[in-house]
Design a protein around this nucleic acid. Structure first.
Lengths: 158, 158
DNA sequence: ACACAAATACGACCTGAACGCAAGAAGCAT
DNA sequence: ATGCTTCTTGCGTTCAGGTCGTATTTGTGT
């Protein structure tokens, strides 16, 4: 079994990547702290591509209960400045964070909040039109496109 | 001069439309109150297509200072249920409200918050692709598409 | 004019997030 | 190993945007 499913036990591969980021952090004048290491381990596990700060905090706190939620916010902000993570808004409610290497657009159902990860190329024509008509460069990843998923459309129809 | 520019003095045309909505409200079991009448007059004037609840409250309070912000919220909610107004999220910050007859998509600059009203047809291909690939019906009006406007792109480049 | 349901003003409360500050820890030089 | 400096952290406070509970007022059909 080579695919990773559950990484509550950190594996060597993602540990390496965590260390890479921590090196980057140190090189940029930052410091390697345990809360940062744990947060990065969570981000590099494959549990969910759309975790809120609060969800990440809970996950970190399962290992280190004293890590404060504001530390999570600040570290996510720092990691975002370094380009390691990005956040996206999937409609109402809290922002979600994920690795910037795993960036993608989102289609989110207004009714059931189901989120679909959309390959970036479905935005190509819109990007071209916006640029042509408004000289506007769209960023289709930071905010989700809302709408209705198939099952909620069906439910509406009946 | 036939085009309407500033309606701090309410005109007959929009007063008629206000009365129409108030009739609708009464027919649906609601009551005609002064705060509702004033709010509707604000919505039917042409001052801005993107007003927040707070901005509308200020405008209402210039005429009736005792109208509470929570009344504005509740009345906007009621008007939205009746299909008279809709709200949209133009990125971070408060939602904006406008008449549902004046609905449109938005392109909003992440940098300067400038909002462009986008005709709905620029979303056509995206809508078709989302439907084909994800059976997803997009609603491009409720949430803005974020990005960078021309002048901020230029500013970035230098 | 009356009774009753619907709105209102007001304040308390809520979520998601940012901030100020004193205390603690990381990294560097020695 | 030991300071020294600067970065981080925990904690509480504060903020924005909005919702909710409640006593009181007000619109409306009769």
């Amino acid at each position: 079994m080579s695919s990773r499913v559950n990484s509550s036990a950190p594996n060597a591969e993602s540990d390496d990547r965590v260390d890479e980021v921590l090196d980057l952090l140190r090189e940029s004048g930052g410091r390697v702290t345990t809360s940062r290491r744990i947060l990065l381990r969570c981000l590099f596990d494959d549990e969910s591509p759309h975790r809120t700060a609060e969800e990440l905090a809970e996950q970190v706190q399962r290992v280190a209960p004293d890590v404060h939620i504001s530390t999570i916010y600040r570290n996510l902000e720092e990691l975002e400045r370094l380009g390691i993570v990005v956040h996206a808004h999937l409609g109402h409610g809290p922002a979600t964070y994920h690795l910037s290497s795993d960036t993608h657009g989102h289609l989110v159902c207004e009714n059931c909040a189901m989120a679909f990860e959309a390959p970036e190329d479905i935005f190509e024509e819109l990007a071209a039109t916006a640029l042509r008509d408004f000289h506007f460069v769209i960023d289709p990843r930071h905010f989700a496109v809302l709408g209705r998923c198939a099952s909620c459309v069906n439910a509406d129809a009946t």
